[in-house]
Design a protein around this nucleic acid. Sequence first.
DNA 1: ATAACTTTGTTAAAAATTTGAAAAAGTTAG
DNA 2: CTAACTTTTTCAAATTTTTAACAAAGTTAT
Lengths: 209, 209
Amino acid sequence: MAKSDVSPSVVKRLPRYYRFLGEIKRAGIQRVSSGELSKKMGFTASQIRQDLNCFGGFGQQGYGYNVEQLYDEIGKILGVNQKAKTVLIGAGNLGRAVASHMSFEERGFNLIGIFDKNQALAGQLVRNMPIRHIDGLYDFCRDNTPTVAVLCIPSESAKEITDELVKLGVKGFWNFSHYDIAVNHPEVAVENVHLSDSLMKLSFHVNNL
Amino acid sequence: MAKSDVSPSVVKRLPRYYRFLGEIKRAGIQRVSSGELSKKMGFTASQIRQDLNCFGGFGQQGYGYNVEQLYDEIGKILGVNQKAKTVLIGAGNLGRAVASHMSFEERGFNLIGIFDKNQALAGQLVRNMPIRHIDGLYDFCRDNTPTVAVLCIPSESAKEITDELVKLGVKGFWNFSHYDIAVNHPEVAVENVHLSDSLMKLSFHVNNL
DNA sequence: ATAACTTTGTTAAAAATTTGAAAAAGTTAG
DNA sequence: CTAACTTTTTCAAATTTTTAACAAAGTTAT
């Protein structure tokens, strides 16, 4: 099956598999069956087999899956060995935390620049990288051609900056803002992290236990 | 339809509706049709009508939906007017950013305590609230009975703390750690924010455009 | 080498979600 | 007040996702 035919539901679970396999691999476990994965991950064994089979048979009857091989294969599918040049826009509380906290390199990204509109932040180091003023974004992108942007900015500024970044060749957005990139730019890849949506979902569930 | 019968897919979209209705309400718009919502939000009109109908007919034929009424109704369903007592565990980069950045009060939560195992952070103010040492968590919970916890801690510490919090009566977790609460405590409400999963999903999509 | 056992790959069925379309109800304009 | 129009509600069809079951293949123990 071609990668682009993989259903959204499967894509959503791939990172879970990857993380879990990484854990048991580091724990020294060499083989694992769909049944064991099922018990520890909370998916049905049937679903796990179905998912993994989208990419060709990695398992072996009577044995199960080789942890390291499966880990590597899923890593390849996810592209975690890529080095997509990435800029982060917005170095407020959230932006700085994301910049410092995330292992971009282990997930297929290479963070090459951090920008903020607040002149006072300029020069301050985050992750050993100076915060740059947003005015330099255009030139920076022209010179360094990043393909991915992380948006940690308020939604008011988001439309303008997104439009510019798309023009400058950015193909993927990790979007922490409330601006709806996907509706306005259906041609790029967008992954939204809507923290307040998540919080409201929790509110719903807590109030309906 | 009873709230607990609402399907996960619908619950996932409720916060989107709530946010968007809030925006257009603040912009002074008083009525809206499913067709307009569709165009601006990127769902089909049919789906929107189906979703909103789960909770009883808020709309009126030939007119559409009253923005303010619909906003209030969805707010009630989500429980954003609640004040669930909430503790945040882990005041590292991410924890501090979440504490400072999120509008807990507007989403149904009341943040009453921040904890960290790092003694050096104790007393430091975040959101006008002193960081407390984790050793005080037990007494604090016994005295203040929080019902929700935000976990911004590494997964190694997560199991122990989660077990203790569940014993102390915490019913909902906003989980930024990689520890799988839901598998081990199926009785509580869990909303996971797995940033690295989201990042890997973006990697997949960027590499398969 | 053989037999019993395990576990995958695969197919089919079931369940859930999304989309489409028509009937019912209310609005707006003349 | 009537007729044309808009839009929801509701029902049915199509699609997607999940679950179940079984045959095929390989492993392990004797």
